[in-house]
Design a protein around this nucleic acid. Sequence first.
DNA 1: ACAATATCCTGCGAGC
DNA 2: TGCTCGCAGGATATTG
Length: 320
Amino acid sequence: MPELPEVETIRRGLNRDLRGRKIIGLWTDWPKYFSAITSGKLQKGEATFRRHVLGKEITGVTRRAKNILIHLEEKSGGEHLLLVHQKMSGHLMIGKWQRANRKLLQELEEKWQNQKWIPAAPKGPLADPKNRFIRVVFFLDNGEMLALSDLRRFAKLVCGPKKLVLNLPELKKLGLEPLERAFTYKKFREALDRKRGRVKLVLLDQTRISGVGNIYADEILWFSKIHPLRRIEFLKDIEKKTLYRAIKFILKRGLRYRGTSIDDYRDARGRRGKYDLVRYAYQREGEPCRRCGVKIRRIKIAGRSAHFCPACQTLRHRMS
DNA sequence: ACAATATCCTGCGAGC
DNA sequence: TGCTCGCAGGATATTG
């Protein structure tokens, strides 16, 4: 579900509200989510993961592509990272659970674990009907909880020493961060060098430019007036420049509107994003193009929907 | 090297 | 109402 603007919006919320908090409990109904790395080996399952996170303090929350990185306890002992990828339907949210002392929380946690109790907070962000699929709960020392709602159970959580986590292939292989200063036109061209294939799939390829997903890929291409089936290797220089500018413009715009809440996306405190109100192409099939009025079309590319304006976004490069 | 497909899951809305 | 089908924001593994 979340792409760069959504993940970054969530990250900012988490960074503001989680810094200084200690993780004092963990509940889940889906142990498959978890893995932990120790001495380079990836251990699947909840047990080792639990040992890595319990009792640690959160020192900050950063982001790499669509991954959220929760930094744990850098002062005493080595810094650990808790990597969360929310995939299609995951949402990290903070909800007030209750004020209670540590002992009581531990007792409750054991109880819930045994009874497979599913926490359903009656108030606050977790009461959102779209985000009631709570699969993981981190209990915090201030009576709040960091919860993962994830209907489809695709999310992924890994914990381990900072260096080992940063060396995971899913982080190592990632391409340029499009909103960083280092994302220059020169770097963009280098990343595209010798890359071939349909431009839409290139935008979705996280090893070139990271953070763009299906929504913003369609938005970027609409804004660039480039047809999603065009081949990257045949784009003219001027089109590549347009594409480069559009990537930055659209992602910033998405971030400014705090993400897209067509469906169930909410920020860490349960607030909707508003980009869907101003979107150009994504899931606007049959609606008029905001430039020319022609109806937006939908096609399938590699099994995923692509929305575009058949008049503005032509398959042939237009001189003009 | 590339492209298309299957896979991990669950819920929802459309259409019959 | 009740069923089946298609669809969903991601990434990886597999197959051709």
